[in-house]
Amino acid sequence: MSLFLSFKLYKVIMRKSYKAALWIICLAFMFAACDDSKPAKNGETANAGNEAEMQNEQQKDADDEKSDSPMQASVITDIIKSIPSPLEVSFLIKESGTSYLKNELNDHKKVDNYTNSYSKALNLGVYSTDLGYANIYEKNQDALLYLNSVKKLADGLNIGQFFDYHTIKKLTQSGNDMDTLLRLTTTNFEDINNELQNQGREHLSILILAGGWIEATHLIGLVYEENKDEKLREKLGEQKIVLERIMLVLDYYKNKSNIEDFINDLKELQSVYKRIKIIEERGDPIIEITDDGPVVTDTRKSTVEINDQDVAEIKSLLSSIRSKIVD
């Protein structure tokens, strides 16, 4: 359309027909203003060298995105946003009194082994969980190594510019402002997810979250084996809810490279989780109005029915899925 208008414009200007030219300018302007088909913001701050690569990947992703599922983008974004932060699990693990499990985390040196978008995204999630875990245990040196791996993978996915590496590094080195460090890290990961969604690369968002979830759930299983803390056992069972949500989104992207195999692995895990029951006893919330707003204590209670065999199977399957991701 714009080519046609330009040609027409050229012709009429040549004929010195002012009025017609102005009409065409107005029309062109209106067409441009009404054009909703242009893609969403495309990583404006990405460096030029990576732009072509990113566009190629986006084209490939766009070609991949032929799904019959009618799920809307806003629904996918909502599900992705609902997935809890692995930090909640890491805090629970520390609270259980277990020592820092350095040898169970992913080796930071493996970062160069991850060469395609699929493995980069999954391992970005794995390393981000390890980074949070190391931070909570105040293992600054390890946290710095994981930070470098996270940065490298984020750069590899052309989203490194949303990661405030230098500030996080300084906070990690000083080790005296954990709140700000966790806040900044979480904000950066939110920015990365938002940007991937703006770029139409939500499948990478869900892979990052899935990688982070697998690492955190794997850690729960390992720590439970060590201390048999009932809270960790329940937490392992409660992951049924999170897995269901991850599967909903992954299923939408099943036509993308590697995702179908990943889904099949997780389906096996889901079949064990189907045996687990989360039972809720009803009750009304107790609301106290304070100067800071309502403080609400729930009286409902949920319990998780999960036996030793379920725990063993979940642990074993998680370990095998994780190995496929990190090794």
Binding site: I241, D292, P294, V296, D298, R300
Partner: peptide, 14 residues
């Protein structure tokens, strides 16, 4: 209008 609220959750779920 309060700034927000604090919720002590006792039941895991959506």
């Amino acid at each position: 209008f309060f700034d927000g609220w604090t919720y002590k959750c006792t039941s895991t779920g959506i």
